[in-house]
Design a protein around this nucleic acid. Sequence first.
DNA 1: AGACATGTTGCTCA
DNA 2: ATGAGCAACATGTC
Length: 280
Amino acid sequence: MPELAEVEYFRRVWADGLAAKRVLRVEASGRRLFRTGGALLPQLVGKHLLRSQTAAKQMLFEFQAAGGTQPGWLGIHLGMSGELRIEPPEYVAGRHDHLVLWTPAAAAVYNDPRMFGRVDYQEGPAAPEWWTRIAPAILSPAFTVAAVADYLARRQRAPIKAVLLQQERFPGIGNWMADEVLWRAAIHPAQPAGTLSPAQIKALWQQCRAVCRLALRTIGGQGRKLPSGHNAEVPSSWLLPHRWKAGGKDPRTGTPLRRSTIGGRTTCWSPARQKLPRRS
DNA sequence: AGACATGTTGCTCA
DNA sequence: ATGAGCAACATGTC
């Protein structure tokens, strides 16, 4: 489920729910999620949430011990089906709840049926190394047209849809955002990355930024809701609310949308606006 | 019953 | 060495 803006939404849910309360109890299950540091999770007891951030599809919650010991760094990647919730303090961990933190005021729950997510906990003076290695955000100054062009040049033959899903260059972009970007940029998802014209690359870059900005404002913003199922929150002028519907129509042209597997993922596009350039 | 799901990784082959 | 494609992971839903 979670891409850039949804990750920001879930981070906020925990940030609000955990406030500055001390952790009283921790319950962790599902070995497979805790690639590293799972054994250290009990050391969260006594600490409180200091601040939190998102980068790409990852979250980092920084906990400070009351007694001035080492800060604790809780990293979460929600995978395909993960979500974070806040429940009352008397909450009892249920099915697929892989991590629950209880404070006097609330239970913070990480639930993930498919278990493609990841949890990392470690302690130390600074943020963990994996966190610092995440590519600079699409909305940062480091995400330039030139950087995009260079990257496409090294992925000449891959369909542009597959390239947009590469987190090392397009951090936070997932399946629906990639389709949204290509639709807005009027680029066919199967077009080989190496055949994009300079104008197309510029449009791609612009729409990456626009979709990230809009998504964060609409979905990740204060008091916002997730675009789950048939949502009313996401404007119908976006591709997103139309992409899974059978017989879905391009909201700009009213023409039928197409769906097919491109770059290994189900892809939705509007044949009327997104055309392959003629081969020469 | 069978297809499919908003993600990543690790393997194979060129 | 590097890029491209695909199975695998585990479970739920349509």
